[in-house]
Design a protein around this nucleic acid. Structure first.
Lengths: 168, 168
DNA sequence: TTGGAATGTCAACAAAGCTGACGTATTGTA
DNA sequence: TACAATACGTCAGCTTTGTTGACATTCCAA
């Protein structure tokens, strides 16, 4: 039976065939939909979107972060982020305080209400992630993270690693 | 030193801590940006977007697929898909033919030009995926796929698996 | 003191999703 | 043979989230 592989290709490189790569690409596409589905449902009720979720997540993750820093983490323009941030501030989910050392900077924190929404969103997202982790097991999880990290842009990976080991 | 873990938690469950889950969530977010970055750059020059890429990908993957089938794979409304499909047909990248058995159906194929663009896009995306796979190794890749598959919605996983093993 | 950096705002626009409504051709069924 | 359901296309209108470009304000630092 012809499996489409050149006979000289060793078992060791079978995971690099175009077919394997295509499966990985489709797995990323389909999995990302699941990944965002639960928070999206929660946000839809509140007339917020994914952009609000991302802002809330990273403000929670790095309390006191500046607008500029958040910008480069999220990879969007300041105008785009500003629109999202403005509604979150207006709605009392995010507090923006003038910097001490540099008064041009605004430091962002979640309010109690913002922290409550963050908790609700991340609980939902973690539930799915936990189920997937549990189903796949610790070895698979390690591989999952390795491949994802290798897939990032250089600059992005720096952001990722910079906040990798911060304590809660 | 307090690592934040309850002392009764065995090593076997450390991969399910909130901190591990959060890292996985952030890895998904950052990696997905890298995942789409290369095709996005190619598409920007041609005034197409990610939606066009997805349509082209799955038409290439399942030649002769109907509009309805594509709809349920992509998880969008027919109005949204139609806008994309119309431009692709107008530009001569996709051919739409009336069904033989059921004349209500339209069967979708890539033209030579469409196949050329598909090749360009998937080459770029596969290059990054290949580099990530190579860096992480075959064991990691297996885990990567396992976790992603466990992360999908039920219905989505059916789509994924239905086209999993089709020959090129 | 002056140039540049950080921030914010206004305007205009585009991609890509959504709902709702409607028309047409075709098919299956009562 | 009527009628209901299906597949597809399209129009209109709306939302979210991204983009440029222009411009004002505030403040640090050379």
């Amino acid at each position: 039976m012809n499996d489409g592989m050149p006979p000289q290709m060793g078992q060791s490189l079978l995971f690099l065939t175009d077919e394997q790569l295509r499966k990985g690409i489709e797995a990323m596409f389909f999995a990302y939909r699941g990944f965002t589905a639960d928070p999206d449902r929660i946000l839809a009720d509140k007339s917020y979107g994914r952009a609000h979720h991302r802002a809330i997540h990273f403000i929670h993750r790095s309390p006191g972060t500046t607008v500029n820093n958040l910008l480069s983490i999220l990879g969007v323009t300041k105008q785009s982020l500003n629109r999202v941030l403005r509604t979150l501030i207006e709605d009392g989910l995010v507090a923006s305080t003038v910097g001490q050392r540099d008064k041009r900077e605004r430091h962002l924190h979640l309010t109690a209400a913002g922290a409550a929404l963050e908790r609700e969103l991340s609980d939902a997202q973690r539930d799915r992630m936990r189920a997937a982790y549990r189903a796949a097991g610790p070895t698979a999880v390690a591989g999952f993270r390795q491949v994802l990290e290798a897939m990032m842009d250089e600059e992005t990976r720096h952001h990722y690693e910079a906040m990798k080991d911060r304590p809660e």
